[in-house]
Write a protein that binds this DNA or RNA. Structure first.
Length: 717
DNA sequence: CGTGGGCGGATTTTT
DNA sequence: TCCGCCCACG
C-alpha cells in the first residue's frame, strides 16, 4: 500500500510518532513543532495502515476551535466524512454520552447544561435562601470551591471538614447545590465529566462496551488535563488501552484552574511500556527567538526536558524597549506596527500580548486615535449575551419546566408584575415542599393576592402556550415565535439608544443561528434540545470582522496555539508579569515563566519586549522593576532600543544605585541644572519618592522632559 | 420597577 | 481609574 501521502511531509521525529506501533504513546511536542499535524496523521495512519475502523477512534481536545480544526484536517486527509469518528472536547463528548445514557447516569432525559454564569446565579440564590451572609460566603468563591472538588472527582460525601467550620459550611453548600441541580435537571460543566466517569466506574458492562469500542483514544494538549479528565481517560482505556497523547509541559499555563502537568509524567507510570517521542524541531520562529525562549524556560525546574531548534535563519535580535510609561509603551508599539505596514506587512500579522485584560485599554486608545484597525480577543461571546440568554431561558423552560435557573431568569422579563413578594412565596413553597419553582408557582397561585396570582398565572399560561404553539414548528420558527410572543423582542426594542438596537439584532441573529443549526443526530434528542446544548457548550466567537485586517490584541493565555510574524510582549514588569499574586510560591512563578515562554514562542519573525518604568494602575501610579524574565533571557540575544536619550535605565544594571535620597535633596523646584546630553535647564516638577523620584526639566534647547532622577545625573548649577 | 449613586474590588479562561 | 453590584429613591 502506498502510504507516502501520509509521511512525505513529516520530519523524522514526526514520522516515528505517527508510525509508532499501537501502544500507549506520549509525544512531547514543543511549540511550533507540528503537534496537530502528528495527531491528525496518526489518525489517518491508524485508519489506512492499521486498518482501524474510524468508529473505534476518539480524539479529544480542550476547545471547540481545536476540535473543529482537527476534524477538518482529518476529513481532508482521509478524504471521507469523519462522522463515525468521534472528535470533540472532553465536555462535548461527555455530553454526547450522557444524552445516550441519561438513564444509566441517573439524569432526566430533558437535562440541561448550566454555564458558569447560570451556576453562579443558582449559588447566589442558594446562599440567600439559606440566609447566609453573602460577604462571608461569597458565591463566586463557593462556585470555585465546588468546581474544584468536582474537578478532583469528589462528591460532598467524600469530603471531610477536618473540624474546620468554614470547610464544613462549604461542603454543606456543595451538597445543597448538588441537590438543587439534581432536582431541577441541570448539570454544570464539571458535572458532565464527573457523571460519565462515575457511570463508567459503576457500570461494568457499559465500561466494557466503550473500552471495546474506543480502542484508540487520542488526546491533544495533554498538559492541560485535570484530575477528573485524567481519571476519565484511565477509566475509558483501562490498563490494557493504548492512548496516544500529545502535550508540552513547558506550555502548561492552566494550573490555576486545575490542570495537572504531572499527568504527563504520570502517564508513563500508569501505562507501562509507554513509547516516548520528542518533537523538538520548530518550524515557526527564527533562531534568536527560539534561543531566547529556551534561555528563559531553562530557569524552570522539573521539566521533562526538551530543547527547540530550527534549521532556519537566526533572524533579527529580540528587542527590548523601556518605556517611560504605559502610553509611551503603546506609542512605541504603534510606531513599530506602522513600520511593519510600510514594509508591506499586514496589520493582522502583528499581535500585542499582555498579562491582564486591563492593559488592553491604553493600546486600544492609541490604535483608535491612530485610526488603525484592531481586534481584541476575549470579549463577551454570542451565546453569553444577556438577551440571548433570556431567549434561551424561555426555550429551556419550554423544554424542561423543572429548570429553576431559567424560571428565575425570565419569570418577570419582560416585567409582568411579578415582584419580590410573589417570588418569595413561590420560593418558600418550593423549598418546604422540595419541588421545582414551576410546580410551586402552580400551587401558590391560590394563596397569593389577586394581582400577584393573576400575573403568575399569566406567566405559566404563557409558557404553556408557547410550548403548544411552537412545538410542531421547525427550530428557527420556534425560536422566532418564542422571542416574539414572549414579549422579549418588544422589551428590547424599547431600550433606548443603539444598545436596544444591537440587542434586537442579536435576537434576530439567534433566529438565523437556529435556521443554520445542523443538529447532530444524537439518539433521542430533539432539535431544540440539541440546539440548547450547543449554545451552552459552544458559546460562539465573540466578535465579527475576523477577516478584516487589524492588529490582534489578546492576553497571553488566549494566544496559546496561535502564531504571528510580529509579537509584542508588553508590560514586562515585576508585579504585573510575573503577576504579584503568582510570585509567592515557586510553582506560581514557574507557571508565569511558562506563560512568558508561550508568549515568546508565538513570534515567527520579530519579538519585541516592552516594559514601562511608570504605570497607572487602578488609578494610582506604580513603578515596577523590569521583569525578571527579561534578565533570564541570554543577554546577547537582546538588543535594547533607546528612542529617548537615557530616559530609561539599563535593565542589566544588577541592583539599584546608591542612596537616592541624597540626589532628591540636591534638586529643588526652580533650580537650574545641567544634563550630560540635554544641556542646561530648569526643574519645574518633582514627583515620586526614593528610587522612583522623577524630575520635570525644561531644557533650553531640548524642551520639556521627565527624567528618572536617580539616573539623570543632573548637575546643580 | 427601573435607575443612579455609592461602595469595594481589581490575574489568567474554557467548557 | 473603572467596573459591577447593591440599595434607595422616584
Amino acid at each position: 500500500m502506498d502510504v507516502s501521502h501520509l509521511l512525505d511531509r513529516l520530519n523524522d521525529a514526526q514520522r516515528q510518532a505517527v508510525t509508532a506501533p499501537v501502544a500507549p504513546t506520549l509525544v512531547l511536542a514543543g511549540a511550533g513543532s507540528g503537534k496537530t499535524r502528528v495527531l491528525t496523521h496518526r489518525v489517518a495512519w491508524l485508519v489506512e495502515v492499521e486498518n482501524v475502523s474510524p468508529h473505534a477512534i476518539l480524539a479529544v481536545t480542550f476547545t471547540n476551535k481545536a476540535a473543529g480544526e482537527m476534524r477538518g484536517r482529518i476529513e481532508a486527509m482521509l478524504d471521507l466524512p469523519a462522522a463515525p469518528l468521534w472528535v470533540g472536547t472532553f465536555h462535548g463528548i461527555a455530553h454526547r454520552l450522557l444524552r445516550i445514557h441519561w438513564r444509566e447516569a441517573g439524569l432526566p432525559q430533558t437535562f440541561q447544561i448550566l454555564d458558569s454564569e447560570d451556576q453562579l446565579r443558582v449559588l447566589r440564590r442558594l446562599v440567600k435562601s439559606l440566609e447566609l451572609d453573602e460577604s462571608r460566603w461569597v458565591p463566586r468563591e463557593v462556585q470555585w470551591f465546588i468546581n474544584a472538588q468536582k474537578d478532583e472527582g469528589l462528591r460532598p460525601s467524600a469530603l471531610k471538614d477536618d473540624g474546620d467550620p468554614t470547610r464544613r459550611q462549604l461542603i454543606a453548600l456543595y451538597a445543597a447545590y448538588q441537590e438543587t441541580c439534581d432536582r431541577t435537571g441541570v448539570v454544570d460543566f464539571a458535572e458532565l465529566l464527573l457523571r460519565v466517569f462515575e457511570m463508567w466506574q459503576q457500570d461494568a458492562q457499559l465500561r466494557a462496551h466503550y473500552r471495546g469500542r474506543f480502542r484508540h483514544v487520542l488526546v491533544d494538549e495533554f498538559q492541560d488535563t485535570n484530575a477528573i479528565q485524567y481519571a476519565w481517560l484511565r477509566a475509558l482505556t483501562g490498563s490494557e488501552g493504548t492512548p496516544f497523547v500529545v502535550g508540552d509541559d513547558d506550555q502548561s499555563i492552566y494550573r490555576w484552574r486545575g490542570a495537572r502537568v504531572e499527568n504527563l509524567a504520570r502517564f508513563q507510570r500508569d501505562f507501562p511500556g509507554t513509547q516516548l517521542f520528542r518533537l523538538e524541531q520548530n518550524y515557526r520562529s527564527t533562531g534568536n527567538i527560539l534561543a531566547a525562549a529556551n534561555g528563559l524556560i531553562r530557569h524552570n525546574s522539573g521539566r521533562l526536558g526538551k530543547n527547540l531548534w530550527t534549521s532556519g535563519e537566526r533572524g533579527e535580535p529580540v528587542r527590548l524597549y523601556a518605556a517611560y510609561n504605559e502610553r509611551d509603551e503603546a506609542e512605541f508599539v504603534l510606531s513599530r506596527i506602522r513600520e511593519w505596514r510600510e514594509q508591506g506587512g499586514a496589520l493582522r500579522e502583528c499581535a500585542i500580548l499582555y498579562r491582564s485584560n486591563a492593559q488592553s485599554r491604553v493600546f486600544e486608545e492609541a490604535l483608535m486615535s491612530a485610526r488603525m484597525p484592531y481586534r481584541v480577543y476575549g470579549g463577551l461571546r454570542f451565546f453569553e449575551r444577556a438577551e440571548i440568554k433570556d431567549a434561551l431561558a424561555y426555550l429551556r423552560l419550554i423544554f424542561n419546566r423543572a429548570d429553576d435557573a431559567s424560571f428565575e431568569r425570565i419569570v418577570n422579563l419582560p416585567t409582568r408584575g411579578i415582584g419580590q413578594k410573589t417570588l418569595d412565596a413561590v420560593r418558600d413553597y418550593a423549598k418546604s415542599n422540595a419541588c421545582t419553582l414551576w410546580e410551586a408557582a402552580g400551587a401558590t397561585i391560590a394563596e397569593l393576592g389577586p394581582r400577584g396570582g393573576a400575573s403568575l398565572h399569566g406567566f405559566l399560561a404563557l409558557v404553556e402556550q408557547l410550548d403548544r404553539d411552537s412545538r410542531a414548528l421547525p427550530l428557527h420558527e420556534q425560536v422566532d415565535q418564542v422571542i416574539a410572543a414572549s414579549g422579549l423582542l418588544a422589551h428590547y426594542r424599547k431600550d433606548k439608544g443603539d444598545r436596544g438596537e444591537v440587542r434586537v439584532e442579536n435576537l434576530e441573529e439567534l433566529v438565523s443561528a437556529a435556521r443554520g443549526f445542523d443538529a447532530e443526530d444524537v439518539e433521542e434528542l430533539s432539535p431544540l434540545a440539541s440546539f440548547l446544548s450547543h449554545a451552552v457548550l459552544e458559546s460562539g466567537e465573540g466578535q465579527a470582522g475576523e477577516w478584516e485586517d487589524g492588529v490582534q490584541m489578546m492576553t497571553l493565555h488566549s494566544a496559546k496555539g496561535l502564531e504571528f510574524p510580529v509579537v509584542f510582549l508588553c508590560g514586562l514588569e515585576d508585579g504585573l508579569f510575573p503577576h504579584q499574586r503568582s510570585v509567592t510560591d515557586v510553582a506560581g512563578l514557574e507557571e508565569e515563566r511558562r506563560l512568558c515562554y508561550v508568549g515568546a514562542t508565538r513570534a515567527m519573525r520579530q519579538l519585541w519586549l516592552t516594559y514601562a518604568e511608570q504605570r497607572r494602575l487602578h488609578g494610582a501610579d506604580s513603578y515596577g522593576a523590569p521583569s525578571r524574565f527579561i534578565r533570564e533571557i541570554p543577554e546577547e540575544l537582546i538588543e535594547e532600543i533607546r528612542l529617548r536619550i537615557q530616559v530609561s535605565r539599563p535593565v542589566r544594571v544588577a541592583g539599584r544605585r546608591g542612596p537616592i535620597e541624597e540626589a532628591v535633596g540636591g534638586v529643588r523646584l526652580g533650580q537650574r541644572v545641567r544634563h550630560g546630553k540635554f544641556g542646561d535647564g530648569v526643574v519645574l516638577g518633582l514627583e515620586g519618592q526614593g528610587s522612583h523620584a522623577r524630575v520635570q526639566v525644561v531644557f533650553e534647547r531640548q524642551g520639556t522632559k521627565w527624567l528618572m532622577l536617580a539616573y539623570a545625573n543632573l548637575e546643580p548649577l
